[in-house]
Structures are given as C-alpha cells and as structure tokens.
Amino acid sequence: MPDAAWSKSSYSAPTDDNCVETARLHHDVVGVRDSKDLAKGHFTVPTHAWGRFIGSVVG
C-alpha cells in the first residue's frame, strides 16, 4: 500500500523493538504492520473490530 498514510503508535519509541503502525486503507479496513520490518507486509482488520480492540486496551 504505497499510498497509505501510515501512523506510528504513540507508545512506540525510536529505540523500542515493538513499533506498530496503522493506516486506514479503505473506509472499512485498517492496516497494521511492524514498522521495524516492513518486508513482512501488513494485515488488515475491519474498522469496527479495530475500534473495539483499541477500546478494550485503552479502557
């Protein structure tokens, strides 16, 4: 997804090996990838499921 606007997690640090990036790939799909190893690609999650996941770890 070369045109996707990927955003690094605010919990990721420059020296941290656990860096996650997300991007809205379509109106109902979120992409998730490891920013330290882009060659592995990404996986996709429905937007509503990603929202529930984030709500469960934040709340």
Rank of each mutant, 00 (worst) to 15 (best):
L38P: 01
T22E: 08
G51Q: 14
G55I: 09
T44D: 05
R33Q: 10
T47F: 02
H26Q: 08
C19D: 05
G55K: 11
H26F: 07
V30N: 01
H42N: 06
K36H: 10
T44H: 02
H48G: 09
D28Q: 12
K36D: 04
K36V: 12
T44S: 06
D28I: 00
W50M: 08
T47P: 00
L25E: 02
S35F: 15
V29S: 04
E21V: 01
F53K: 13
R33D: 06
V32R: 00
K36F: 11
S56K: 14
V20T: 08
C19H: 01
L38K: 10
V57T: 15
A23W: 03
F53A: 10
E21Y: 04
V20P: 00
G59T: 14
I54F: 09
V45H: 01
V30F: 06
R24Y: 06
L38A: 07
K36A: 07
F53M: 13
R52V: 03
W50P: 00
A39C: 08
L38Y: 02
T22Y: 05
E21I: 05
D34H: 09
A23I: 07
P46Q: 08
G31Y: 12
V20D: 01
R24G: 06
F53L: 12
I54S: 06
R33Y: 11
A49S: 06
T22S: 13
V32T: 07
F53P: 00
A49W: 04
D37N: 15
V58D: 07
T44W: 02
L38S: 09
I54N: 01
G41I: 09
G55Q: 13
E21S: 03
G51N: 14
A49T: 12
G51D: 05
H42Y: 10
T47E: 13
C19F: 02
V30G: 01
F43G: 03
T22G: 02
K36L: 13
G59A: 15
